[in-house]
Computed example of a mutant assay.
Amino acid sequence: MAYSREALIEAVSAQMPDKRWQHTLGVMETSIKLAEMYGADPQRAETAAILHDVAKYWPVERMKDIIVQNGLSAELLQYDKQLWHAEVGAFVAEHEYEITDPGILGAIRYHTSGREGMSLLEKVVCLADYIEPGRDFPGVDEIRKKSMMSLEEGLIAGFDSTISLLLQKRRVVFPLTVLARNDLVRILEEKI
């Protein structure tokens, strides 16, 4: 039996600190707004937002075990552990919370990294994660402003911010994020 919205909220909120749940509430609200603004399904956007950080506070070894034992993207294990929760979250959404909608699962899976050929729903949830009202980092207001112009403009600004921060810290940049950014730039160039 599929989980109701309320049951999902109860189950997911119990797995994270209150501060992270507040972030999730912000992503839910922002996902709905962006979905309505850009023509995505608000209900699907909200469901993906509820579940996007479901595995965020799981122990690293538990996430690694799920990735390895279930043949998920092993490439992730070579990159920052902060990326792992998205892939694991999509797996958990499907196998523990009975989410069968591939669009919702994709939005959960790619909310941290993006990917080439992002769907409308993936763009909405990824961008909502960047700009929800509780987010406070250098450049977030500019990302919010660009988000009102287009999903692509907002996401490019978000990815640029992430990549720039990683470069400043001499950290490895996940290739999928670079590919996602470049794909969005190409999409905007084609519109000109």
Rank of each mutant, 00 (worst) to 15 (best):
A35N: 03
Y38S: 13
G39Q: 11
G39T: 13
P42E: 08
P42D: 09
P42S: 10
Q43H: 05
R44G: 01
A45F: 06
I50L: 07
I50W: 06
L51S: 05
V54H: 06
V54L: 03
K56P: 00
Y57M: 05
Y57A: 04
W58S: 12
E61V: 00
E61R: 10
E61C: 04
E61L: 10
M63W: 01
K64D: 01
V68P: 00
V68L: 13
V68A: 02
S73I: 02
S73G: 00
A74T: 08
A74K: 14
E75K: 15
E75N: 11
L76E: 11
L77I: 06
L77N: 05
Q78G: 01
Q82G: 06
Q82K: 13
W84K: 07
H85P: 02
A86W: 05
A86I: 09
A86D: 10
V88A: 10
G89M: 03
A90T: 14
F91S: 12
A93M: 13
E94M: 10
E94Q: 15
H95W: 03
H95Q: 14
H95N: 15
I99G: 01
T100D: 11
T100M: 09
D101Y: 12
P102L: 03
G103V: 02
G103S: 09
I104F: 05
G106H: 07
G106L: 04
A107G: 10
A107S: 13
R109S: 02
R109N: 07
Y110I: 09
R115N: 08
G117C: 09
E122C: 03
E122I: 00
V124W: 06
C126Q: 09
C126R: 08
C126N: 04
D129Y: 10
Y130D: 03
I131W: 09
G134V: 03
G134F: 03
